[in-house]
Design a binder for these strands. Sequence first.
RNA 1: GCCCUCAUCGUCUAACGGUUAGGACGCCAGGCUCUCAAUCUGGUAAUAGGGGUUCGAUUCCCCUUGAGGGCACCA
Length: 495
Amino acid sequence: MRVRFAPSPTGYFHIGSARTALYNWLFARGRQGKFVLRIEDTDEVRSTVGSIKSIMKGLNYLGIDWDEGPAIVRDASGEDRLISKGEFGPYFQTLRKNFYNQWADKLLEKKKAYLCFCTKDELEDMRKKQIEKGERVGYDGRCRRLTPREREKFLSHGRTPVVRFAVPAGKRITFSDSIRGEISVNSEEISDFVILRANGTPMYNFACVVDDHMMKISDVIRGEDHISNTPKQILIYEALGWDIPNFAHLTMILDVDGRRLSKRKGARSLLEYEDDGFVREALVNYLALLGWGTKESQNIFDVGELVSKFSLGRCTSSSAIFDNQKLLWLNAQHIKKLSAAEIYRRSYRILKEAGLDVYPAEKVQAAISLEREKIKKLSDIPNLIGFMLAEKVEYDKDVLALGGDCAEVLKGLLKLMKNIEIFKSAEIEKEVRRFSKENNLKTKFVFHPLRWAVSGRSRGPSLFEMCEFMGREKVVERISVFLEKIEKGGRGELL
RNA sequence: GCCCUCAUCGUCUAACGGUUAGGACGCCAGGCUCUCAAUCUGGUAAUAGGGGUUCGAUUCCCCUUGAGGGCACCA
C-alpha cells in the first residue's frame, strides 16, 4: 500500500493541502503503508524553491514525515540543497522529463496520442466560436488526422507541436471513489487534451499518471477539484495498459462565507498558525475532523488515535467550512495536556519576541503554571504572565480609578505583607482573611484592591499564588507605588 | 453554456428504512469561586423544496433550487 502527497510548489502551503497531506499520512501509517512526497513543479514559471521548503517545513510542524521524497542536505560549502530520497525518485517532476518523453513516445507509437500544431491564436479563435454557437468548449481534434506531408510542412515552417492525447469516442468511463461511490462520465465530454507542451514539459494529468504508476502508488487520495481529472487519467492508464489505482476525493474546505478558501478570506499559510501559537496536536486534530468523523462524533484525539481510527469510508462527502472557534477550543484543550515545561519550550520564541525575560526557565514556567488554563494560543502567554515578570507594573485605567477608594485598606495590607512570617500562598491568604475580618471588611473589598495594586489589573491568576510567585519584596513595592499613585484622588472611605 | 460532485442545528458532525433526530464548537442561563478563566448543570437551534417507492423515509429514486469543482501549452 503506497500513497502520496503531491503538491505543486506555487505560493504558500495552505490548510487544504495540509489536510490532504494529513489524510494520506494517516491512511498510510494506519496500515503499514508508505507515504511519498512528490513535488509537482512542472509549471516552471510559478514553482519556487521557497515554496518547496515551506511545504516541508509545514509538514514537519504537523509531525507528518515521509518515507520517500525530497530531503535537505547541507553541502560542503554550507549551502542547503534539495535531493531525493527513495528508490522511485527523483521526486521532483522537473527531474523526470525523460520518463514523460519516453511514455509520450509510446502513446504516439500506439497512435493513442498525436502531434498538434495549432497555435494559441487558432485555439483561442476556435474557443470563441464554440462559445458563440453554444457548443462544448474544447479542442476539436483537427490535428488528429494530419497527413505525414502536412506534418512535414508544419515542421519545416518551424512550428513546434504539442502532444495531445487521443480521447476514444463514445466511451463510458467509470470508477469507484472510496468516499463517494461510483462516478461515471462519457468520453464525449472530454476533448483531446495536451500531455506534453511544445517545450517538452508534461502537463499535470500526464505527469501525474506516469509518476503514480512508476512510484507504484496504490491509492490516490486528493482534493475534490481532481474529480474531473480522474477520467482523463484513467484513459491514460488504459492506453498504456497500466493498473488503475484506487481513488478517493476529499471535500473542499470553505471559508466562513461558504466560498473556497482564498488568500483574502481566512486562508493563511499553515506556518502562520504556528507563529500564532497553535500547537500541532490541535491543528492535526482539527484538520482530521474537517471532513472525517467517528460514529461517536468524538472530538478530541491524539495522533495515535487518529492513525488507528482513520478510514476513508468515514470521510464526509460534503464540503466543510473552516471554523476558527473550534480550532481555538481544540488548541486550548491540547495545550492543557502539555506540561508547563513543554509549554515554555514551545512558546520560547514567542515569549522572546514579546520582549519577555525568558530566564530563569523555572521561574517563567512557574508563571505559566499559574495561568495555564487560560491559554488558548501560545501567543496569549506574554500578555497573561508578562506583568508578573516585569520590573514595573502598568496600571489599567479602570484599576486606577477603582483604586482611589482603597488607600486605607492598602496601607493596612502593606503593613501586613511586610510582617507575614512565611510568604507562601496559604499563609498569605490566611493572614489577609484575618485582616479582613478584624477590620470588619468583606473580603472582596480587600482582595480586589490587593490585586489591583499588585498586578495593575482587575483580572489575573489566583491572587495569593500570584503574591507568592512575585515574592514579598515585589508585592510590598508594588503596593507602595500604587498607594502613591492613588494618593491624590483617593478618598479612603472604605476604612 | 456543458459535465461532475454535494445538501442534517450558525459551524463540524452522528443516526442497519422504525431515535423524543444524538454529540461537539459557539451562544444564553445557572452552580462553583478572590477576579478572569477552567470546570459542572441546563437551555437555544437542523433533516433545502416538491414528487414518488414503502406499513413507515434524514436514509432509496426523480425533479427543482442552492452551493462547490472542472471544461488551459495551471496544478
